[in-house]
Write a protein that binds this DNA or RNA. Structure first.
Lengths: 146, 146
DNA sequence: GTGAAGTGCTGGACGAAATCGACCAAAGCA
DNA sequence: TGCTTTGGTCGATTTCGTCCAGCACTTCAC
């Protein structure tokens, strides 16, 4: 599905997605039209979901992060999910097996905001909030070795 | 700190980080040398941590994800953290307040891998694993409004 | 085997984009 | 008031991306 060249292209782009096709081509020993075509196909096949940018949340004023585990009350599941989706401070949410139904990441400007946001779901779900103290591993791609 | 133009630049780059400076400039009504300079400063100040690419984990064979809560046994905290960092399948890890010490995201090729990886920390920590069934919110930036 | 078709690459030409330097206008300040 | 800093424009030059023709290699039918 993905050959070695595609994998190293992905690795390089993960570190710097604004690299020129020329430089990218040199690093994988291919001409620029060739890597251009590979990029096109990687996007087309959905291997590359997006070229994006990693922003320091603190630069936007988000000095706090929390991990919130959420267990909607009976019959409230869809309402809760909709509420999470419509609250932009929830920047990541997974629906999981086990007692908790959702695990979500919340970006906060202050601890007061936490209270405001959690209060909005407090009557529809049980929640368990953990404040992030440190990030030993920040978002990284999984290993490529096939 | 960040003016409106910087914010809209970040918003545009979050959607497509490979956009040309020319197009980016047109969208924010600035010349390309001007946006080039703003980009340079955003990077320099650490607002932009990296230009990167979002890869479909399934394309790399990772058909499963799990959220693992980890509570190291007394005296094992540093060993456990090192182990997490050295296990590339752990693609995200937060150190949090509360009973659990770490919350980590694990990418898996098969359910068998889960057993192998969790076994490696089983004698150093209590773990609680939830399999991801769906992702109602996939990584998105927090709201920019200052 | 052999020829036809398909795939994925190279290299050069050409138009588009990035960069560089010169210059300018507004804001902050002695 | 006039100097300095900051952040911008514009045009020239260089660099890059894209298009296209051609080539090598593989697959497959005969």
């Amino acid at each position: 599905m993905l050959d070695e060249i595609d994998q190293s292209i992905l690795g390089i782009l993960a570190r710097d997605s604004r690299i020129s096709l020329k430089d990218l081509g040199q690093q994988v020993a291919l001409s620029s039209p060739a890597v251009s075509e590979r990029l096109r196909r990687l996007e087309e096949r959905g291997v590359i979901r997006a070229f994006t940018v990693e922003i320091d949340p603190a630069a936007l004023g988000y000095t706090l992060q929390a991990i919130v585990r959420i267990r909607p009350l009976p019959g409230k599941l869809h309402i809760v999910q909709k509420l999470l989706e419509d609250t932009p401070e929830f920047c990541e949410c997974d629906k999981v097996t086990g007692e908790d139904c959702y695990v979500a990441r919340l970006f906060l400007r202050s601890i007061d905001d936490l209270d405001v946001i959690i209060d909005r779901i407090a009557d529809k779900a049980e929640t368990n909030t953990s404040i992030v103290k440190a990030q030993p591993i920040r978002r990284r791609p999984p290993p490529f070795t096939v």
